[in-house]
Simulated scan of single mutants.
Amino acid sequence: MTTSLVDSYAYCQQLAKRTAGNFYYSFLALRKEQFQAMCVLYAYMRLVDDLGDSPEHSFEERATALSHWRNGLQRALENRSDTDCQQYHACFPAVLDMIQRYEIPEHYFFDVITGVESDLQPVTFDNFEHLADYCYHVAGVVGLCCIHIWGFHDERALDASIDCGLAFQLTNILRDLAEDADLGRVYLPREDLNRFDYSPADIEARIYDQRFRDLMQFEVDRARTYYQRSERLFEYVSPEGRRILKAMHQIYGGILNEIERLDYQVYATRAGLPRWRKLLIAGEALVASRWFPGRAAR
């Protein structure tokens, strides 16, 4: 590796270690090259998300920053030189190396920018199809990148990873319902709200009643459907990938279970797993990789 490429990988690993929390430790269950690539992927996604979600900057400033990032990535892909890439951002040399090494389609990295850009303005969706398209851009593409890093042997893994990203993003949406509404973002489709005679204004007012519980049960059941659909991904990815996938299923699925355990009262309490449990999940993946490297996780 050139000096700039080594520095770029080091930058991404430091960022992932500082901000990825327990996911960083689950990455350690992968082979060294895969671990490094997952740190690069996480760093890229985190940086793009931060550009679009920094409250200290205006809408115009965030839109401009994302546009500059998109243009910088495009120029870096066209030039391909480590030195040229580094002038756009410290992560770009490692990102381009990862794309080439794991043959990840370049458009995934532009798709996520599009997803973050859609959050700049107040968000509403007419129907679930529109919400699913948004979830593809901010979560499905992450899953697609992951399976290229982990390795997969069946093209059906592509659709399964999109379903997995959708399940995880739906979980985030249900957990963060109130704080997203404060930012002008109502991700639940209007057709779903109408079905249960519940409105965006009710979300803003934190109205917790039977209508809301019925709506949330409907959304939790939908998310579980996608968790079930995504389980086929275990059959298509490498043993290393299965261990990370299992950990992610346990963490996000655990949040969904917690939302239900709270009787859907996400207005008063942020649903989540205790840190010790997330560390345990990450630790199990790491131990399995060291002691049972060839055994698949399910």
Rank of each mutant, 00 (worst) to 15 (best):
D163F: 05
A90L: 08
P200Y: 13
T2G: 05
E235C: 10
I255L: 07
R195P: 00
D214P: 00
Y227E: 12
G52A: 10
Q228K: 14
D119E: 14
C12V: 04
V287H: 00
A282N: 10
D111Y: 08
Q74V: 03
R261N: 13
R18D: 07
D214Y: 10
R190W: 04
D182P: 00
G165Q: 12
L96C: 06
D182E: 15
A90F: 00
S4G: 00
Y227D: 13
R75F: 03
M1K: 08
R222N: 06
R175S: 02
V6M: 07
R206T: 03
D192L: 12
A282L: 07
A37E: 01
D84R: 06
V116D: 04
Y136E: 12
M1Y: 05
C39V: 04
A139K: 13
E260T: 12
D214N: 15
F152S: 03
L15H: 09
A285T: 04
I259A: 01
E191R: 12
T171F: 04
L158T: 02
R290D: 00
E56K: 12
E155Y: 07
D84C: 04
I207L: 14
H130Q: 15
E191H: 10
I203Y: 09
V123T: 14
A297I: 00
T124M: 07
Q13A: 08
E106C: 06
R80H: 09
S58I: 06
A181E: 08
V123Y: 04
L66P: 02
A167F: 14
A160V: 02
Y136S: 11
R206A: 14
E56H: 11
I104P: 02
G72E: 07
R261W: 06
G294K: 14
R222H: 13
F110A: 10
A63L: 11
Q14H: 12
E219K: 15
R175F: 02
H130G: 07
E179K: 11
R175P: 01
N22H: 09
D49F: 09
R206M: 13
S238H: 11
I259T: 01
Y198G: 07
L144W: 01
E60W: 05
Y42A: 02
A29R: 02
F292M: 06
D133F: 07
P189G: 12
V112A: 03
E235R: 15
M248I: 12
D197F: 11
P122Y: 07
R80F: 01
Q86W: 03
A20E: 01
R229Y: 01
Y11D: 03
W150F: 15
G272D: 03
L30F: 04
L15N: 04
R242Q: 15
F196G: 01
Y252P: 05
L170C: 05
L166P: 00
G184Y: 07
I99D: 06
E204C: 09
Q100M: 02
Y25S: 04
D159M: 08
Y226S: 06
A285G: 01
F152C: 03
F59K: 09
A132C: 10
R70G: 00
A65Q: 11
A181G: 09
K246E: 08
A29K: 02
D7A: 15
A37T: 03
A20I: 08
G254S: 12
N71M: 12
H107N: 10
H57G: 00
M45Q: 03
N172E: 05
D180Q: 11
D111T: 10
D192K: 15
D180M: 13
D209V: 14
L131C: 12
F196P: 00
Y198C: 10
F152I: 06
E60T: 09
E61A: 15
F125Y: 15
V141S: 02
Q250N: 07
